[in-house]
């Protein structure tokens, strides 16, 4: 690809595929449990954390992780117990996390809109390092193993939380496990997709899979696969037209989801 060394191409393609697979798997929970507003806020908190890292000269990824997981730890119980409508959570906290992120970028040494700052916002092809790749590999493996180990419990939770409790499945620890993994995924996907757009990968691949299947095993599998396809195709589009990677992934994901809604057998009458 345009004279890039093979090692870099392999890192980029693998990073995109792993990010897509991890987001696709977790997106199944985000879509079904209607955690969109929570994930949206978490992705911007991760962005604010990374921006703070830039301002303080600390590794942005570390503070992105702190931001996303802290948001999950605070918002999870609020969303669960106070039963706040999703738009209230988003309406109050999205501007706050966005404002904090922009203030931290403004305070970052050098130009506020330096390439690393822009990378946090829009995602960057070249921000991905081999270390990031190994972290993503560990994360995707952990998510896949968790889903495999606790498939029954997750299936019950995704069907109906009250009925899951009724059948003797303790749903709360699994709910918090999902939030924790979502926070981790958002933070690790930040470099590639960017803080403003990372959330699309948590939503579109799973939402696409839900258009085609009723069997949860198939939905998990296809959500991960659609995640890989969207991230990979976004990477290709980004290379081909020199677009920001996050934006290219959003364009592909939206197109894919639109096609899925159009062709969905769940909407066919015959």
């Amino acid at each position: 690809m345009y004279g890039l060394p093979w090692s870099l191409i392999i890192t980029l393609v693998s990073g995109a595929a792993l990010t897509g697979a991890a987001c696709g798997l977790l997106g199944t929970f985000v879509v079904r449990l209607r955690l969109s507003s929570l994930g949206f806020t978490m992705s911007h908190a991760a962005f604010a954390g990374a921006a703070l890292g830039l301002a303080l000269g600390i590794e942005p990824l570390t503070l992105a992780l702190v931001g996303a997981i802290l948001t999950a730890a605070v918002l999870g119980p609020i969303a669960e117990r106070a039963k706040l409508p999703a738009d209230v959570i988003t309406g109050v906290l999205f501007p706050l996390t966005m404002a904090l992120g922009l203030i931290f970028l403004y305070l970052a040494p050098g130009t506020a809109m330096s390439s690393s700052a822009l990378g946090l916002l829009w995602g960057s092809l070249f921000a991905m390092t081999r270390e990031d790749l190994f972290r993503l590999l560990g994360l995707a493996g952990t998510i896949a193993l968790t889903v495999w180990l606790f498939f029954k419990e997750f299936q019950a939770l995704l069907f109906d939380r009250k009925l899951a409790e009724e059948s003797g499945v303790p749903t709360r620890p699994f709910y918090y496990l999902i939030l924790f993994l979502t926070g981790m995924t958002i933070a690790l996907a930040l470099r590639l997709v960017g803080g403003l757009l990372v959330f699309v990968l948590l939503q579109s691949p799973a939402a696409t899979a839900f258009q085609f299947f009723y069997d949860l095993k198939k939905i998990f599998f296809w959500a991960a696969l659609f995640g890989v396809i969207y991230a990979g195709a976004g990477l290709g589009l980004s290379f081909a037209f020199d677009l920001p990677l996050g934006s290219a992934i959003v364009l592909i994901s939206t197109l894919g989801f639109g096609l899925a809604v159009w062709r969905s057998p769940k909407r066919r009458r015959t």
Binding site: Q155, L158, A164, S167, G168, F210, L216
Partner: peptide
């Protein structure tokens, strides 16, 4: 329960719903 509402897109098959009743008995892992 008296109240239940499953929309058309609920991603679960009848056999799975019935099997889920036994998940608590089956236990973790």
């Amino acid at each position: 329960p008296q109240e239940f509402q499953f929309d058309e897109t609920t991603p679960v098959l009848v056999r799975d719903v019935v099997l889920m009743g036994r998940y608590g008995r089956i236990g973790l892992f």
